[in-house]
Design a binder for these strands. Structure first.
Length: 320
DNA sequence: AAATCCTTCAACCGCCAGTGA
DNA sequence: GTCACTGGCGGTTGAAGGATT
């Protein structure tokens, strides 16, 4: 496989698929000497390859700590929820999946998850519902819309549960996967995600969150308009029109550019009051926001169930 | 059985950030 | 400060092989 021919390029370096002999040479050299400088490695290992090609082959295929084969359901959920958080930052996502490479995750996303989300009526880029397109495809716009939302809420619920479990586990000092990251240089985001899973959360945040969330919840139920709710994976959107408080600084807004609705986050942060003032570094803020997102998704899921029940009851009453 | 279409994924490319001279 | 080099990353390609016609 690969897109280049088997022939050597202008510099005399071989390209294209690796042969077993080449693999053996590379493996043997690295096991004996370590990779050292990738640029110098091919010559020392007796390979007619570029250092870059050797590095890629090692990272994505030859490393002994690589897990191959089908992705588990848990891995898939992790990918989806992390993608909702960080977007196409495959190296960050890979850092949280044991023995998976960023390339593998990227391929899996593009060939499997992306399509499945699209079929569920979820935009794989924004993680928001594509209600119009699903309705058009299915004939019944209303049913399609409801189906779409139910899928959304269920996805959100699973995501939230998974995230909370993960954070809880991390707090109990279970081993993280960071040491297994295919990248030797962890990105800042890896540290942030790791740190956010280990910091204790203040219950005041929960209280603050309950205030904000249930106001929106009540409002949604009163209007009885399901389509007013946004995708659970996008989270917090129903707070969007709230004005952002002045206490949250601009640099944080920049740093939080991970697909969140910032105004919604701001609103919760404002309600959190004093808790927030103590958290003046980005790590704390990121951690707090992650928790808020998880809680949002759980809450939206509950809200959806109630709305569906109310709609059903109304329908029954009308029929009877 | 052959042709065509579709899916998968290994490998490449180009860009960017970090580092040292 | 800036230049060159290196490694890391995300996007893209295209061959292989499976599925469908």
């Amino acid at each position: 496989m690969g897109r280049s021919s088997l022939y050597s390029d202008a510099s005399g370096l071989k390209r294209g698929p690796w042969t077993p002999e080449e693999d053996q040479k590379l493996l043997a050299y690295i096991q004996q000497h370590g990779h050292g400088s990738w640029r110098c490695l091919p010559e020392k290992a007796g390979l007619q390859r570029s250092g870059k090609s050797c590095r890629l082959r090692w990272i994505n295929y030859l490393r002994p700590d690589i897990k191959r084969g089908k992705f588990s359901q848990h891995e898939e959920q992790t990918i989806i929820q992390l993608h909702a958080l960080v977007g196409n930052r495959w190296s960050v996502i890979a850092a949280h999946l044991p023995k998976r490479t960023d390339n593998e995750i990227k391929n899996y996303w593009n060939t499997h998850i992306k399509k499945r989300l699209a079929m569920m009526g979820i935009d794989p880029v924004t993680h928001r519902p594509k209600v119009a397109s699903l309705g058009a495809a299915d004939g019944g716009p209303k049913n399609a819309s409801n189906l779409s939302h139910m899928a959304q809420w269920e996805t959100a619920r699973l995501e939230a549960e998974t995230r909370l479990v993960k954070e809880s586990r991390a707090r109990h000092n279970e081993p993280t996967t960071d040491s297994l990251s295919p990248r030797s240089r962890p990105s800042p985001s890896v540290h942030l995600l790791k740190k956010m899973a280990t910091r204790p959360r203040c219950l005041d945040i929960l209280k603050a969150w309950q205030n904000v969330c249930f106001k929106a919840f009540e409002s949604s139920i009163n209007s009885n308009n399901i389509t007013d709710l946004e995708s659970p994976t996008s989270t917090l959107h129903f707070c969007e029109k709230t004005q952002a408080p002045p206490t949250v600084n601009a640099s944080f807004r920049e740093e939080m550019n991970v697909g969140l609705n910032k105004s919604g986050v701001d609103m919760v942060l404002e309600a959190a009051g004093e808790v927030w003032t103590g958290a003046n570094d980005f790590l704390d803020r990121f951690s707090m926001t992650s928790m808020i997102m998880a809680l949002t998704q759980v809450c939206i899921s509950v809200a959806e169930q109630v709305i569906i029940m109310k709609t059903t009851i109304t329908t029954i009453v009308m029929i009877s």
